[in-house]
Design a protein around this nucleic acid. Structure first.
Lengths: 138, 138
DNA sequence: ACGATTTTGGTACTTTAGTATGAGTCTCTC
DNA sequence: GAGAGACTCATACTAAAGTACCAAAATCGT
């Protein structure tokens, strides 16, 4: 919101500056009025392009960003979350165990807890729900 | 490209129209020059916003669209693809069987074929690979 | 330091998932 | 109408996945 205020202030300043320019312009010559108007149009057209690009790019980002607050809310621990990520990467319990340097039993415990916390019956469903809840990157 | 040409033609027409307005305006009164310039600025600013929104929205779409050509290239049949979609929705073989009105054996066959065609060892990996290949919506 | 989580691990068991193999039906094409 | 693919289904098996229950370390907040 602060940036929006700044941008609009800058716009007003630019507008006032152009007023001054235009006054000097049509005093000296008559043809330059068209040029001033054209340049105003082009400048504000470009400003419009730029601002929109900025805002739309910001709208894009939240789609892929992980909602870590929700992970806490669901009571999912750090280790459990790590396991969840590996599940979504398509790894088996044994593979996850190797990757995280623990036994397969441990992973099974984590997975069981995850299924309860995500209200899922299978790991595939857990992944689907996690992505819906935006706690996993798409 | 055709739309771009149309938009820029419209811009030129609008510019010419504003020239005419501005000429009449500063003949009658001096204050209205500022108003004309301001309105030009606002109009072109909004045009800039609009055009950019259009183009950026088009860029967004291809990210979520499914690449059906690649499904064919991998030799995945229609029925297999249906099963793949249900897997990514987190359903079990039994649930998929009910949903598609076939036996669980049939689903197992489809899944086995899918795993070979997607070069995956598990259904979770199949989903992950399918999304990487953009044959499944994210 | 103490209680509360978290993380780890085990055993024993049930349920899914996945493989291998074979085979019948159906549709489309040449 | 013969063959190719796709779809269906079954049996028998192996391999994962998941549940239930318990319990010892490790970590962390106050």
């Amino acid at each position: 919101m602060k940036k929006t205020i700044f941008v609009f202030s800058a716009l007003i300043v630019a507008l006032l500056a152009l007023f001054q320019l235009s006054k000097y312009a049509y005093i000296s010559r008559d043809v330059s009025v068209e040029i001033v108007i054209a340049s105003i149009a082009i400048v504000f057209f470009l400003i419009g392009l730029y601002i929109n690009k900025r805002t739309l790019q910001k709208e894009k980002l939240p789609d892929t960003i992980v909602n870590l607050k929700r992970v806490e809310e669901l009571g999912i621990s750090n280790r459990e979350y790590e396991v969840l990520v590996q599940i979504s990467n398509g790894l088996s319990n044994k593979e996850i165990a190797k990757k995280l340097f623990v036994s397969e039993s441990t992973i099974k415990t984590h997975v069981s807890n995850l299924l309860v916390k995500l209200d899922a019956k299978r790991r595939t469903q857990a992944v689907q729900k996690a992505k819906q809840l935006q706690i996993l990157a798409i």
